[in-house]
Nucleic acid binder design. Sequence first.
DNA 1: GTTAAAATGTTCCCGAAGAAAACTTATACC
DNA 2: GGTATAAGTTTTCTTCGGGAACATTTTAAC
Lengths: 389, 389
Amino acid sequence: MTEEQAGEAATAPVRPATARGSRNDHTRRHNLSALIRAVHYGGPLTRAQLTRETGLNRSTIGGLVAELAALDLVAEDAAAETGGVGRPSLIVRPRREVVALALHPDVDAIELGAVAIDGTVLARRRASVDAPPTPRDALAFAWEAAREIADELPGSRVVGIGAAVPGLVAIDGDTIVDAPHLGWRSFALATALTDALELPATVGNDANMGLRAEWSYGAARGVDSVVYLNGSASGIGGAALVGGRMLRGGRGYGGEFGHMMIRSDGDVCSCGRTGCLETELNAPRLDAVAHDAAELDALAGTLATAIANLECAFDPDLVLLGGYLGALYDARRDLVTARARELAFRPEADDIVVARAALGGNRLLIGAAERAFAPLLSDPAGVELRPLA
Amino acid sequence: MTEEQAGEAATAPVRPATARGSRNDHTRRHNLSALIRAVHYGGPLTRAQLTRETGLNRSTIGGLVAELAALDLVAEDAAAETGGVGRPSLIVRPRREVVALALHPDVDAIELGAVAIDGTVLARRRASVDAPPTPRDALAFAWEAAREIADELPGSRVVGIGAAVPGLVAIDGDTIVDAPHLGWRSFALATALTDALELPATVGNDANMGLRAEWSYGAARGVDSVVYLNGSASGIGGAALVGGRMLRGGRGYGGEFGHMMIRSDGDVCSCGRTGCLETELNAPRLDAVAHDAAELDALAGTLATAIANLECAFDPDLVLLGGYLGALYDARRDLVTARARELAFRPEADDIVVARAALGGNRLLIGAAERAFAPLLSDPAGVELRPLA
DNA sequence: GTTAAAATGTTCCCGAAGAAAACTTATACC
DNA sequence: GGTATAAGTTTTCTTCGGGAACATTTTAAC
């Protein structure tokens, strides 16, 4: 409701997705959402800060915070230290009892975590596997790990479960269309998780989840125009934030930068095409040339070419690199940046910012949990939480 | 305010651009905006249709339409033909007296048009030029043509002027950073237009304007995930709609697909890089091979490669081709589509839809006018219209 | 120590906005 | 001409946030 003046936003709203009119209570929902989001992303904040940040009247803030407190989503503490003159403002903090579960099945391990609404990972279970897990394996592990975590975190209330999967996930947030490294095809994981755990479930691509986490709590915090490239055992995952929104595309397959053509006379990729970024610049190849400076430079150049191409398409404020691409970038930081700026089409190429992803092994758990939290953040009063048990 | 549940939208909202709270009158503005948008894009609609479309109560619709009518933005007519039983609903239509001016300076001509709020081009003036016009030329022409058009359209009220420029335009919608074919650099065209015509002015890249027009009234109508490629005398312009929003990027340079690398061993481009799409597939080269079927096939293949790459990045619902790329597509329709599907990374590649842009010579005028209308559409009661005189 | 100033929380009242119900009007169908 | 139906109109009601007045809590000045 406040997105009208997109003067300098990275995207300009054109037509509303739906031309729905708005009723009065939408305003309330929007404002509750703004408050819970503020403390979700910004940590504990005083009511005075919330007043300034939202522009709402302090009497209104009082009412809204009271509602969030009644929902047991936030708690109010007296300020420990008083900043200055005047009555100290109450501190509103998100309650860590409010959690989301996050699942990450990958080729070598399955992981489940409980992430609090303030973004901290409260508990996690991990099982290494010799062969890629089947969906059944993942569901069984999720069920057992969830019970263990429930014992570990008594009194928690869970909003749902999010899963980050290395593969193509349909726009419905349910169906895994194709996860080649896991060998999963056309599996409705969210439905299966809901059946198994009796929780709302959402599934997403791992790169999207990673970028979401970095944007919420990591190196892309608050940056609304980001291109993300992550190198992992399952290839190169890509994602983009366009005007503060995740690029998803019509079917959910947007952001697959690992299969953009980077070299027209390149090698044949596992996907059947030639010269994909993922084929020209992958983990085995990187390992092979680890001690050959010249060849490492060449791979860094390939990365720079990819960055320049993505700059051309997205003009992002930040290019974020994770996994082995982050490692390559660290090894050849100046070369990558300089070459990307050299190859970039746009003027002011010195503004190009490349950085390494910040969140470590918690990234995908946090990202998946963010997806699970989304409905609660959009409509704090309309989502039912379930005791974690 | 109604974009919360992005369940199946092409983008998922993550954090609000600003966490601003909302006051009560925002609701009114939002609903007025929804109504004026509905008739702007959808043409005359009955009040009953508006009721259904917005979900608002019919008493509310009555009040809102009355306000829009008092602002002289819409008029209400009795229904000519009654659809069925019951009292006939009044027809709400946008008033053609409400216009925007649109300017399009290009290498071979300057054009100015007046576009009504229903999207019809009411008047236009065009001046062919031998050499690319200077900004001063464009301003002088705009001033004179605006006076002529004012005489032609007495009683009109104008919301502002939009300009579509072949080149890089800064995110501020004012500065032309670099328009190489015009030879314009670092020129604040919007400011200059406002000074000259005493009207609010906005400037945008021609490809963005073209896609905006096609999305509003053309081949991309209502499709929220679109990639657009337009071939013209000034090269290949690109634009993308991501989740219903124009991809702009951090500085406004997003969507420059004409300079994405399409061939690593390609020719040197005017931008200094090699293998840019614009260099591999341009108008002179197309003309040269017009009668050589094999070579034309090769160029169509290049186009298909570009489409496949963009599919990979954006997963759009539609790839729209304009200018000479539209002509090439028409000449090799099956080949382009088939090859793009073959080269595409994503599954269900048969879903890939390529189409030719629909709006003809009015496209850029309509798109530029859309930009000028934007503030009015967002806040119908808050924008002042000036008599066109 | 007392007092003033400042900043914030709290309470109560107000206007604005849309919903809903009741009433009115206009059309089709019999 | 009577009736059903759909929509416009008017009136009343609820909800929401804003704002003023008052209460509370701290710092700073004397």
